[in-house]
Amino acid sequence: MSGDDRQNEEDRQSELAREHKERQAKRAAAQTAKSRRNTFIGAGVAVVVVAGGIFAATTLVNKEPSKVSAESTPSASASASTAPSATPSVKTGPVTCTYKRETGVPNKFVGLPGKKPNMKLKKMTIVTNRGTVVIDLMTDAAPCSINSLSFLAKKKFYDNMKCHRLVTPDVSGVHLLQCGDPLAKADGKNPTDGQGTAGYVYGDENTDISLSKGVVFMTQAGDAMGQNNSQFAISLSDENNQIGSGYNVIGVVSEGMDMLLGLATSGKDLIVNEADITGDGGTTAPKNPVIIKTITFK
């Protein structure tokens, strides 16, 4: 083999080694992203075995906790919110929403929303026993989600409902409040907390927004698509950006963030539900309950 041939062979081997290393790095990054999403939060359909039977239930994904440094934990006096890192996917022209009845999960059914959303809705106000939260809505980007929430609010579906999950960074590596399970007890004893819905599901929309502090989104299991229901969550930290996009964002908190950040400063303020039916370590609810009194839209 000539000197040129040897050099060409060495160059080819170097190029193959570089490409192999790049492929490994891409696979590792993809696996990390999938793992982070699957350890986050959601309410999607899963099959659970209970008392010798099998039934479909919505499941909260909460597997191996990851740690976040104390320096990254928001304080109770943090700023109101952080702007989303992407522009909402605004829909143009007439919008028709489709909602599908789902009877295989624990639910409180009060009917199906209408197909024509009110595109003029701009604000969602949640009055709780701990304070009031105002959300600026992305109605042009998530009309069917907001149409669903507005319908349920008018039916008083959320009235006197306990928010069943509050997570702090030292517990799960993320920081959020989740509400919307009509059957939740939030007492650390009810095994099906986080399973309940309004008895229907609908498709995804506005999923390109990352979950910065203050972003409000509909919850699904980490690997679910098109299974949005009555449950929603409020991101309480920019650390949640590590999960990326993919969840159905409805708006951003404009008032009440200081109150939300003060609900729990660490896992010591939470009740762990070891009896959670999913077997993923249990949901964590605030020791001082967060109870929705009313939700209104305008």
Rank of each mutant, 00 (worst) to 15 (best):
D5H: 07
E9I: 12
E10V: 04
E10T: 00
S14F: 08
E15Q: 15
L16C: 05
E19R: 15
Q24C: 07
Q31K: 14
Q31C: 06
T32N: 15
K34S: 13
S35L: 12
F40A: 11
I41Y: 15
V45Y: 04
V45A: 14
V47D: 15
V48T: 13
G52N: 11
G52L: 10
I54H: 12
I54R: 15
A56E: 10
T59L: 07
T59E: 12
L60K: 01
L60A: 03
E64K: 09
V68N: 13
S72W: 05
P74D: 07
S75D: 12
P84E: 12
P88D: 08
K91F: 11
V95F: 06
T98V: 12
T103D: 15
T103M: 14
T103E: 15
G104P: 06
V105K: 07
F109L: 03
V110L: 04
L112N: 00
K116A: 09
K120F: 00
K120T: 07
L121Y: 01
M124N: 09
T128P: 04
T132G: 14
V134P: 00
D136L: 05
D136F: 04
A141Y: 01
P143L: 10
C144D: 11
I146P: 02
N147D: 12
S148L: 05
S148P: 03
F151C: 09
L152C: 08
K154L: 06
N160W: 04
R165N: 01
S172R: 14
S172E: 06
V174Y: 14
L176R: 10
Q178A: 08
C179F: 11
C179K: 12
A184N: 03
A186H: 03
D187K: 14
N190Y: 03
D193W: 08
D193K: 10
G194T: 10
G196T: 05
G203D: 11
D204G: 08
T207K: 03
D208T: 09
I209H: 08
K213L: 07
F217N: 07
Q220C: 06
A224V: 04
M225C: 01
N228W: 02
N228Y: 07
N229K: 05
N229Q: 10
S230R: 03
Q231W: 11
F232I: 01
F232M: 06
I234D: 02
S237L: 10
N241V: 08
Q242Y: 00
Y247M: 11
V249C: 14
G256A: 07
L260H: 00
G262N: 14
S266R: 02
S266M: 03
V272E: 12
D276Y: 06
I277Y: 14
I277Q: 13
T278A: 13
D280L: 11
T283F: 12
T284G: 05
T284W: 09
A285W: 02
P289H: 08
K293I: 01
K293A: 01
